[in-house]
Design a protein around this nucleic acid. Structure first.
Lengths: 210, 210
DNA sequence: CCTGCATGCAAGCAACTACTTGCTAACAGC
DNA sequence: GCTGTTAGCAAGTAGTTGCTTGCATGCAGG
C-alpha cells in the first residue's frame, strides 16, 4: 500500500518532469498526475528536490540492455542489432534526457544518470571494435590508424544519439526510416574502420564464419 | 538611446534564457542582467513572452556562415573547413539550443529558429555531395547507392551536432580534440560514400586537381 | 477496543511570479 | 519655456510556488 503510493508518485514525478522540466514540475501537478494529495508527497519525500532526484535517477537507469557477441561473426548484423537496442533505449528516455541536459547548469547531479548508460554502451562498442580487429575483420581495406577508432566510435554513437533525440523534432533531417538509417550508420561505421565482411587471416586468433 | 536599451534588454534576455530556460528566465533576472528597471521591459516589449520570442529568434539566427566550393578540388580539406565552421556555430548556440529543445513541448514556435540554420547546412552538404559525384570523386571505391547518401549526410551532421552540443558535458565520450575529431568525422564520411582523394574520370564534367 | 500509521482535506504561510499604476526626473525638438 | 518621450522608483495587483499545520478518516495489529 504505502510502496504503491511511493511508486505512483515517483513515476508521476518522472512523467511530469519529462514534460515540464525542473521548475515546471510543480508539486501540485505531480500530485494530480499521481492521483494523490499534494501533502502526501511531502510526507513521503520531504522535499520536491528529493523526490525529483530519486525519480529521475530511478527512471533513467538503464539495465544491461543488449550486448555484443564475444566472437564476431557478421559484424554488420550484430552491430545493427546492438545499435537498434541502444537507439530504442535512448528514444524511450529522450524527453527526460532533454530536460536533464537543459537543467545541467543549475543541478549537475542529475547528469550523471544519463551519462551512465551512454558510458556503458561506449565501452561495449569499443571492446567490440578491439575484438573485430583481433578477429581480422577490421583494418583490412584501409590500414586502421589507432587514432581513427575513437572518433569512429564517437561518430556512430553520436549519430544514434542525435537520431533518437531529434528525429521527431526535425523530420526533414532523416529521410529514411529509423531502421534503415541505423543500418546505414553501421555500414558507414564499418567502412570507416576499413572493415571487410569476411575476416582476413592475419591475427593469431581463429575467427572464421560459423 | 532607446534602441540601446532595447538591445541591452534583448541580449540580456537571451543570456538569461540560455542559462535558466523559459520559466527560469524571470523578468526580474533579465532586468538585473540588463541593468535596467523591470518596468522598462514591459513598456518596451509588453510581455515577457513577446520579449523572449524576439530575443531567442534574433539570437539564434545564423547568417550565411561558410559555404562549400562549387567546384570540388580537395574534398577532405573543403569539408573539414566547412564542418569546422558549422561546428563553431552550433557550439556558440549550444546553451540556447538546449533550452529550445527542452521547451519545444510547451512552446513550439521557438523550435523553428534552431531548425532553420540546420536545414541550411543540410542542403549545403547535400548539394556538395551531388557535385562530388558529378566530379567523379564519389562512388569510385564502392558503388554508391542513392539510399546511402541521406543517412551519410545525417550521420555527419549528427556527429557534428552531437559533438558540439555534448562534448563539454560528457568529455570521456570524445577522446580526441574537437579539431581532430572533425577531421576524422569528415574522413569517415568520405569513406562511407566510397570517395577517393582523386577524381575518377567518368562524368562529363572536368574536375581535375588544380 | 485501542493504538499507531498513512492518507485526505481545508487552510494558510512567505516568497515569488507577470504585470500595472502613479509619480517624478531627464532630455529632446519646437 | 513648453511639450512629448523615455526612463526610474515605489507600491500594489492577483496568481502560483514549495511547504506546513490541524483535524478527520480509514485500516491493520495487539
Amino acid at each position: 500500500m504505502i510502496d504503491d503510493h511511493r511508486n505512483r508518485i515517483k513515476s508521476a514525478a518522472a512523467r511530469v518532469y519529462a514534460k515540464h522540466g525542473w521548475t515546471g514540475a510543480t508539486t501540485r501537478r505531480i500530485a494530480e498526475e499521481a492521483g494523490v494529495n499534494e501533502v502526501t508527497i511531502f510526507r513521503q519525500f520531504g522535499t520536491k528536490d528529493a523526490l525529483l532526484d530519486i525519480a529521475v535517477r530511478e527512471c533513467s537507469r538503464v539495465d544491461a540492455s543488449s550486448s555484443l557477441p564475444i566472437t564476431p561473426r557478421v559484424p554488420q548484423d550484430e552491430l545493427t542489432e546492438w545499435a537498434t537496442a541502444h537507439y530504442e533505449t535512448i528514444r524511450g528516455l529522450r524527453e527526460i534526457f532533454r530536460q536533464i541536459m537543459s537543467d545541467a547548469n543549475n543541478r549537475p547531479t542529475a547528469l550523471s544518470c544519463a551519462d551512465n548508460g551512454q558510458s556503458k554502451a561506449l565501452s561495449q562498442l569499443r571492446d567490440y571494435v578491439i575484438r573485430l580487429r583481433r578477429a581480422g575483420f577490421v583494418g583490412t581495406i584501409y590500414p586502421l590508424k589507432p587514432a581513427d577508432v575513437g572518433p569512429a566510435v564517437s561518430m556512430l554513437m553520436g549519430a544514434l544519439f542525435n537520431d533518437a533525440m531529434n528525429r521527431e523534432m526535425m523530420p526533414e533531417f532523416f529521410p529514411q526510416s529509423h531502421k534503415e538509417s541505423i543500418r546505414a550508420y553501421v555500414r558507414m561505421f564499418l567502412r570507416g574502420l576499413g572493415a571487410s565482411a569476411e575476416p582476413v587471416q592475419q591475427a593469431p586468433r581463429r575467427a572464421r564464419r560459423s
